[in-house]
Each structure stands twice: as C-alpha cells, then as structure tokens.
Amino acid sequence: MTIDDSNEEIVNLLKEISGKLDRILMQGTSTKESDEGIFDVLDVMTLLTLPDHLRATATALFELGSATAEDLAEKTHKERAVESNYLNQLVRMGHVVKGRSGRKVYFSIGEGLGK
C-alpha cells in the first residue's frame, strides 16, 4: 500500500466517523425536543401518543369543553378521585389548565406551555 492509498483510506475513515457523529448529534437533538414536547399544546396527534388512561380523560374533556373531575367521572364511568388524579397529571404536562369558580375546580384544554 502506498502513502497516497493510506492517506485516502484515513480520509474515508474520518468521513465515516464524522457522519456517525452527525447522526448521534441529530438523535441527541430530537430526544431533547421530545422532552420539551411534553409541555406542548394538546392536539389530536399528541392525544394519540398519550397512555390509554390519560387519552380517555383528555378525549372526554375535549367533548365536555370545561368540566369538573366529577363531570369527567360521570362520562368515563370511573371514580372521581381517579379522574382528579389523571386531570392533575395532564395539568402538570401542560395539556390541561384548571381554574376555580366558587368552590368548584374546573378543568379545560390548555394552550401548552411550550411552542
């Protein structure tokens, strides 16, 4: 093998390593985006990515518009405390907002905390 051949092989190997590093960096970026995405607005495609129990609660909330945990429980046929827990999980994810009206707490679809 001549010096020129060796140099060419080294250049090719460096290109291959550079390509691999680019792909690793791209994966790192997309992972970061999905972590931030948890604070995204709740659209129907995001709804489809939620776990079953949260999706059922969020879907019912879309239908009701604004609702208490009790309203939700009536629609989904689950316990009020269970729905309250799921709703508060959705609030922490930024998908749902809650507000007080008198002694009642109402939940509704939020506008997201991120982009």
């Binding site: 607005v41 709740l42 659209d43 129907v44 495609m45 879309f62 679809i109 506008e111 997201g112």
Partner: peptide, 8 residues
C-alpha cells in the same frame, strides 16, 4: 398545532 387543538 395550537390552531388545530382549538379547531378540535
């Protein structure tokens, strides 16, 4: 997506 959420 924000618009689509509101549209739903």
């Amino acid at each position: 997506r924000k618009w689509q959420s509101k549209a739903l």
